[in-house]
Amino acid sequence: MIGWLLVIVLLAYAVQRLWLGYPRPARACEWLAPREVHFLEAAADALFPSGGAMPISGREADLPRWVDDYLVVLPRSKRTQIRLLLLLFEQATLFFPAPGPLRKRGWRRFSALDAEQRSDVLRAWSRSSLYLRRLVFMALRAVLTMGYLGHPATLRHLRLAPYRIESPITEADVLYPRIGQHPDDNPLTPSDITAPSDGVPIDLDGPLHPDYEEHPL
């Protein structure tokens, strides 16, 4: 009887810890569950806080959105691995609680910790003597770094944003339709083929790729 009670209590705790209490995200996601969005926001805050040397913070870079878009294009196995990574990090405070006094309840979910505790947790992961634990941290940071450094505002700030480039039309563009199209829907014909690249260096003050231009609000 006591055993069963214990199982029920544990199950209830697991359900509460895994699913309950997460706010509904502002925007619907294709793959990410609310708990994953919430975790990613917390991790983005801790990894790339506001007020640093970069023009935007991780939260402003809307990393959950980037991760969601990324998951869409990943093969299933990699998508599962990344979602497991998020789950692991969010819940790992159970086994590796944030240091500090008991009243700060360092074993709460990562996203429920305060900013200082989150930093402490990241520091512990990044400096762990366990290779695998460091590896998990590096994997999480790698995913979020890809999104952060892919953001137009960070790239513009670093003068690393891609430039606008008009692609010449080659024989290949006439032969191959765009991915997903039928060749009959390829509007290009041999008469559309243009002169090849002239080798003129790109203009460092020239216009940026449209997706990376600064759009006035």
Binding site: A46, F48, T145
Partner: peptide, 15 residues
């Protein structure tokens, strides 16, 4: 992608 650190330190490195 493998730049070490996190937080302000990491941002300083990116900058």
């Amino acid at each position: 992608v493998r730049t070490p650190g996190f937080g302000y330190e990491l941002q300083d490195r990116f900058a």
